[in-house]
Each structure stands twice: as C-alpha cells, then as structure tokens.
Design a protein around this nucleic acid. Structure first.
Length: 425
RNA sequence: GGAGGCGUCGCCUAGUCCGGUCUAUGGCGCCGCACUGCUAAUGCGGUUUGGGGUCAACCCCCCAUCGAGGGUUCAAAUCCCUCCGCCUCCGCCA
C-alpha cells in the first residue's frame, strides 16, 4: 500500500507512477474520493457517538422523569450511531480495497517502458569463446544428464512438465550452493532462517503477490493456504503487526525455502531443462531498514549478489528493470543476469527489489524512531535460486570432455571436488 | 480427531461471576524532571496503537482499540454466538 497522506498531498506523483507502470490511472481518483468519504463519515460517527456516550453516562444517577427522557434520546441516538458506523466502515473498506490495488510509487530513476526497456548498468566477467577452444557448448540438460545430475523425464512422469529430480552430484551441487550461499550471507551479518512454505492470505496479500501476480500463485483451496513463490513472503510477514525499535535496524534475514510458481502464461517458454520450473529452492536476502537507508541497502543487496556471482565465476550483467516490469511492490529493481552460452544471451539469476514502505504498510510493520512511529522499508534480493544457478554453472564451466569445472568457492562444500565427471552409462 | 484451560494498552498483572463510578489497576521496563559530590538510590510526572479535528510546530480535543468478528442493551473488557491463536492431557502419525 502506498502512503495515503502522500496521495492526498501529491496525487499527480501517484498518477505519474501508475501511468509508468501501465496501470489504471483513474484508480487514483477512486481512492481519493473513497478516502474523502471515509474521513467525512468518520467525523459524523465520532460526533454522534460522543453525544450518545455523554448522555448515557447520566442515566444511572438520573431521577425517574429525567431517566425516561434520557432513555428516549439515547435510544434514538443509538440508531443513528449504528447507521453512521455502518457507513464509516463501508467507506473504510472501500478505501482499503481500492488502495491495495495501487502499485508502489516508482523511483524517479527507473527507466520508462516494458520488459525490453531495461538499462544495462554494469557488465562483469568474460564470456568464453567456445569456438576458439575448439568445441560447441552443450546445454545444461545434456550436461546434467551426462553427469547423472538432472532427471527431467522422471520429473515429468511423476509430477508433470516443469518438474525434475536432482540426482547424485546434482543433489550434492544444490546442497553445496545452498551452504555456500548461507555462509556468505551469515558472514555478511544475515540471520539464517528456515521459513514456512505455506502461508495465510494476509501474508501473501501483504507482500503484494495477490494482485497481477495472483495467477502465478498456488492456492490450497480446502485450507485457504498459499504456497509461497519465495521466502520473501514469510520473511516480510515475520514482523507483521510489530513495532521495531529504530536501534535494532537494520534487520537482515537470509531465508531458505522451497518456492512454488504456477508459471501461468509461459507455455512454450523455456520448456527445456530446469531453467523455468514449478518448484525450486532458493536462498533469499531480506532487509528491514529505516526508509532513509533504503536506497543504500538496495545497493548493498546488489553488491552481495555480485559477490556471489563473481565467486561462482559467472559472466553477468546488472540491469535496471523498467517501470512496466517492476511488479506491484517494488519501487526499483536491479536484476543480475548471467550469460547462458547455448542461448547466447544474459538471463535473470538474481533480483533485488526496494519496496520502501509498501509491504510494511500492508503488513503493519512499523519502527519506533524516538517518539514517532512510522512504516519502515523492506527490501529483498535473491542470493541463490538453485536451478538457474546450476544451469549457469554447468554451461559456463563445461569442458570439452563433458566434465564441469567446480568453481573454487564451492569446492569446500563438495568434499574438495574440482570437477564433476560424466558417469559411464 | 477428542477433552479442558487461557488470550487485558512493550513484559507481567487487577478487573469478567453480579453491565454504567473502567477516563482499564498495580508492578517491571523505558523517557523526562527534581535531589544527592559521579552511572546508584529516592521522589514527582509521563509512557498502547490507529483514525480525525486544530496547528507553522508543540500542546490540546474527539472517536475507536481489552485476540478477531457478530449479537443483546440507552450502555459491553464484563452477557450470548462464531472464528482465530496459544497451552495442557488423550488418541494417531513423520
């Protein structure tokens, strides 16, 4: 939810933001008028209720005639109060319902446009020239199958398309990645967290995933649980309804959880291998900070992601995601995209979002700064989304003989192994 | 799945049987002031959150808030109903 006070003071800014996102601009005025109705109906209720209370207090000590009179008056007031209360509540719900549909205010530096209009901020690492090395790179699935690391056929047999098994060294590789990622995050001061994968509607809605993103969320109808698409959800909701003392900030958590995504509307996209799947594990960084520190924290998250990818020796670029591709809750988003040799392009591996107070207001997470209580800022950034990282590692570090070199940072977590070798079959 | 208990403004807690004097008690913690040669002790005052009014700001005022929602009533922390959460015991099961 955006700051309604800001909306009242500077509606044009909110309109501009909605327009940039490609969302309904008229919604801004609907929210404004609903909010005005909320204010005036609340005022009326407060007055009536005040009168009713003060008269009611006189009743126990009143003389019999006075009592008759008072009962008559308060009886009439009672009906009026009920009506006013109903109207107030209705206006409040309407305001909330409409306001929840507004996306976050977009940061002024975000490039305008859609998915293709991102701006490349940085490029890191060197793309290998396989031609010069004298062989054609194999794709991650071919490599993974030869290593006995990935089994998508049985994944499909058991669970359908976009499911997979990680087997043998594939399973070990995931565990190594997760351990290495958690180690890096812990070193940086994050608290490691294992989080629930099933959450209630409020957590899902508060994090901003039940808007346009709703079609990509699994829902267990019988129990009204949602399967999280990222541990961002349980981490954002972790401090729901709490007031955090300013001197405890920043709070940094590194969540590890399975992630579930319906991938609706992606038919035919990335169908081969494990680049785009319905279930995967991910290590996610999540920060609660003072809003004044949010932009700096955003940069810090990005730096940790770059450190991670650099350690894995992957060539990648950093992009500033355009307005139309931000998602509801981010005011700005940096993605790190790793080079995928067989696709000949950079693909998203990590994503760092600054949500400002958007999630915090929806989830009622606030901070106490001296006497004042205000919404704090939340940010999140991927550290390691396992399958995509495996894709990038296999393809970028493959050797002519079909083996895969293990980057040094991972070796301690793979029993010192320096390369993954194809299994004889 | 079955039985019982509990949920009060940071934490603990009084109040609920018997509706109004609850403007929710007291303690701890915290903040301010005073005092003492110093951080201690003591005294006094303050200290839920949200919405609104007024305001340059502070102050002040009003309304809501006793897990959530409904009901009864002129009036609900208190009575009734539903739901949620936590705890204990039993059964079953990783």
């Amino acid at each position: 939810m955006i700051d309604l006070r800001l909306l009242r003071e500077d509606p044009d800014r909110v309109r501009a933001s909605q327009r940039a996102r490609g969302e309904d601009v008229a919604l801004v005025d609907s929210v404004l008028s609903a909010d005005e109705r909320r204010r005036s109906s609340g005022l009326r209720f407060d007055e009536l209720r005040s009168e009713q209370k003060s008269l009611g207090k006189l009743i126990p000590r009143a003389s019999p005639q006075e009592r008759q009179e008072l009962l008559k008056k308060t009886g009439e007031l009672s009906a009026a109060v009920k009506a006013a209360e109903a109207e107030q509540r209705e206006a409040e719900e309407e305001t909330h319902r409409l306001a929840m549909r507004l996306g976050n205010i977009v940061h002024p530096d975000v490039p305008q446009g859609g998915e293709e209009d991102f701006v490349v901020l940085e490029t890191h690492g060197t793309i290998r020239d396989f031609g010069a090395e004298g062989f054609d790179p194999k794709d991650h699935l071919e490599l993974g199958e030869a290593l006995g690391a990935i089994d998508v056929e049985r994944g499909a047999k058991v669970s359908g398309s976009r499911f997979y098994y990680l087997t043998g060294v594939g399973a070990l590789l995931e565990l190594a990645l997760v351990n290495a990622a958690i180690a890096q995050a812990t070193e940086a001061g994050f608290t490691p967290m294992l989080t629930p994968a099933l959450v209630r509607p409020r957590a899902m809605e508060g994090t901003g995933f039940l808007g346009q993103a709703a079609e990509n969320v699994y829902h267990l109808e019988k129990d009204d649980y949602y399967l999280v698409g990222t541990s961002e959800v349980p981490l954002a909701a972790y401090h729901m309804d709490e007031i955090v003392d300013a001197d405890r900030l920043p709070l940094r958590y590194a969540g590890f959880s399975p992630c579930f995504r319906r991938e609706a509307g992606t038919y035919g996209k990335d169908t081969r291998g494990i680049f785009r799947v319905h279930q995967f594990d991910k290590v996610e960084m999540f920060s609660y900070v003072d809003p004044a520190d949010a932009e700096n924290e955003h940069k810090r998250l990005l730096e940790w992601e770059k450190q991670w990818l650099t350690g894995l020796e992957l060539p990648f670029q950093v992009i500033d995601v355009a307005t139309g591709d931000l998602g509801a809750s981010a005011s700005r988003k940096f993605d790190c995209e790793a080079w995928i040799p067989t696709q000949g392009k950079y693909r998203e591996l990590t994503s760092a979002s600054n949500c400002d107070g958007f999630q915090a207001r929806r989830l009622s997470v606030r901070m106490r700064d001296g006497k004042k209580v205000k919404a704090l800022a939340t940010l999140n950034g991927t550290l390691c989304a396992v399958p995509r990282t495996i894709v990038a590692i296999l393809e970028n570090h493959q050797q002519a003989d079909g083996s895969v070199r293990v980057p040094e940072v991972l070796r301690p977590y793979l029993g010192g192994r320096e390369s993954l070798e194809p299994t004889a079959k």
